[in-house]
Structure formats: C-alpha cells, structure tokens
C-alpha cells in the first residue's frame, strides 16, 4: 500500500464524507418525521390516511433504494418536476427510511398497555394529549434500538447515491479507482471512512440503549 497516495486522496474522501453526512442526516431527519407522522396515523386509525400509509410502507419497503432514486431523479423530470441530485438523495433516503421508522415507532406504541391510555383519559385528557404526553414518550424509549438500527442502515444505504452522480464516499472511491487504478488504497480508505461515519453512531447507540434500559420503567 502506498501511503503517499492515501495521503493525497484524504482531502477528497473528507469532502465526500461531509457530503454523505449532510445528505444522510437530512434524510434521516426526514425519515423520523415521516415515521412519527405515519405511526400517529396508524395509532389513531385515521380512515383514508391509514390505507395510504399502509400502501406507502409496502411500496417503499419492497423496492430497492436504487430504483426509488432512479424514479425521483430520472422519471420526475419527465413529468416536469425537477429536483437536484442532493434533494433527490435526501428525499429518497427520507422516504425509504420513513417506511422503516413507522414500523419501529409503531412497535413501541403497541407495546404500551391500553390501560395507560385509559388512565390518562380518566384524568380528562383528550386522545391527542394522551398520545403526546403519556404514550409517545414511553413508546419512543422502547423504539430506540429499532430506530438506531434504521439510522445505521440508512447511512449505509447512502452508498447508492453514487448512481445519481452525488460525490459521496462510494462515488469518490469508484471515480479514483477508475482514473488512477490505485484499487487497494481507495478501497482501504473507503472502509475506513465508512467506519469513521458509522462507529460513533453504533457506540452512541449502545450507550443510549443501556441508559434507557437502566432507566427502564420496570413497573
């Protein structure tokens, strides 16, 4: 392995990491919003929206992100909607992630005993107040392991962005290999940078999980 090569590539990888993180976190933030909204719709069993949410979940969980991105990037402009590659990445990740986040939030919500809701209602709370102040906080802490697994999964999925010419880590590696054929150095850097991106999330995740379990409501 040629360390001079690695050193000279470093700035490019740093830029790529920055872009991957930027799109990644925006997409994850969007997926959490979608997840929460979807889980609330399912929780309250809101009529038509409930069906739409169900279809959405199945659609996005059963098609590859690559296909979804192609759709957003190449098909939407055909019907007059033009979005940048970055927006496309955020949207794709957010929508794919949203489908998984809904399921994680939902499993948390379903694990809260019905009588907790009844207890809150008995105090005169509305269904909405009960959801926000009593059920959701408990559900979220139960959902944390699932949500974190989704975050890691989504950050890894960003590698697909290279196909819509976003200069993410994967794109940078492929590009450099194509130009200079320093395959080993490029792949080595690629692995290292993915670890730099994901290890902190994993570690933070397990700390958070342990904390939550320690604070476990264990009633």
């Amino acid at each position: 392995m040629d360390y001079a090569v690695i050193e000279s590539y470093l700035p490019l990888y740093k830029d790529a990491l920055a872009l991957t993180l930027k799109i990644g976190w925006q997409g994850i933030a969007l997926s959490l919003l979608v997840g929460l909204a979807g889980a609330a719709i399912l929780h309250f069993k809101i009529r038509i929206l409930k069906t739409i949410t169900g279809i959405y979940i199945e659609l996005f969980r059963n098609t590859p992100l690559l296909v979804q991105l192609f759709f957003l990037y190449f098909a939407l402009p055909k019907i007059g909607i033009k979005i940048t590659a970055q927006t496309c990445g955020v949207l794709g990740l957010g929508l794919l992630g949203g489908a998984y986040m809904i399921e994680s939030f939902r499993s948390g919500l379903e694990s809260i005993a019905v009588i907790q809701t009844e207890s809150a209602l008995s105090l005169g709370m509305t269904k909405e107040q009960t959801f926000i102040y009593v059920i959701l906080p408990q559900a979220v802490s139960i959902s944390v392991p699932g949500l974190l697994a989704n975050v890691i999964f989504l950050l890894k999925e960003t590698s697909v962005f290279s196909t819509i010419s976003l200069m993410d880590l994967m794109f940078t590696a492929k590009d450099l290999i194509g130009m200079y054929a320093k395959t080993i150095e490029c792949l080595f850097l690629l692995v290292v940078f993915y670890l730099i991106m994901l290890l902190p999330v994993s570690i933070l995740g397990s700390i958070l999980e342990r904390r939550l379990r320690y604070a476990g409501f264990g009633d």
Partner: peptide, 20 residues
Amino acid sequence: ITKLRQKIGMVFQSYELFPH
C-alpha cells in the same frame, strides 16, 4: 366526555401511574 371526566376521578387496581 373530556369535560365530564374531570368531574369523575378514577383509581385503578394497577395504579397506572405514568412510568416516565
């Protein structure tokens, strides 16, 4: 019903305090 329930306090067998 939410107005009325404020007039009616209820205590359950399993306490149902909010654990969080």
